[in-house]
Computed example of a mutant assay.
Amino acid sequence: MKDETSNSWFTHIRIILQKYSLPTAFEIMNNPPSKTLWKKQIDSAINKYWEESWRDEIEQKKSLKYLNLQELATKHPHNILKTTQNNIRDISKATIKAHLLTGTYTLQADRK
């Protein structure tokens, strides 16, 4: 078995499965789930991982205290991100809007 620093495809799959607390590739091959069950399991595991990660980050950073924990949704992006195109100008605009919404944007009045 190769180590974690290997650039092998199998190593990347093993790391991803561990990250999201999914069964190992060997377990999946021995007992393959149906396509719909596997999709639900992956979807649930990824959402759970990111929600826990966000909750930890929200608790650690006081700048995120205004973020509503009940409305964390991984499948439904915020309206700011829905209207953002894939270009540098729109992405920088969305970043500024997100900073304004979370109260982390430094205004000139705050600087003085």
Rank of each mutant, 00 (worst) to 15 (best):
T5R: 11
Q41E: 10
K48H: 04
P33L: 00
T83V: 02
G103D: 12
S6H: 08
F26V: 05
H76W: 08
S8W: 10
Q108P: 00
K2W: 10
I28C: 01
D90E: 15
P33T: 00
K93D: 11
I16E: 14
D56I: 05
D3S: 01
D90R: 10
L64V: 09
P32K: 04
L64N: 11
I58D: 12
E57H: 15
K62M: 14
E4H: 08
A94F: 13
E4F: 12
R55P: 00
M1K: 10
A109G: 01
T106P: 02
T102K: 00
T102D: 08
T104Q: 13
T24A: 01
N7E: 10
I46N: 04
L81S: 11
T102N: 06
Q60M: 03
K39A: 07
K65P: 02
H78D: 15
A25Q: 11
E71K: 09
W54H: 05
W38Q: 05
G103N: 11
L64Q: 12
E57I: 07
S63C: 03
A98S: 15
Q60P: 05
A109N: 06
L37D: 12
T5F: 15
W38C: 02
D90V: 03
K93G: 05
K35P: 00
G103P: 04
W9L: 14
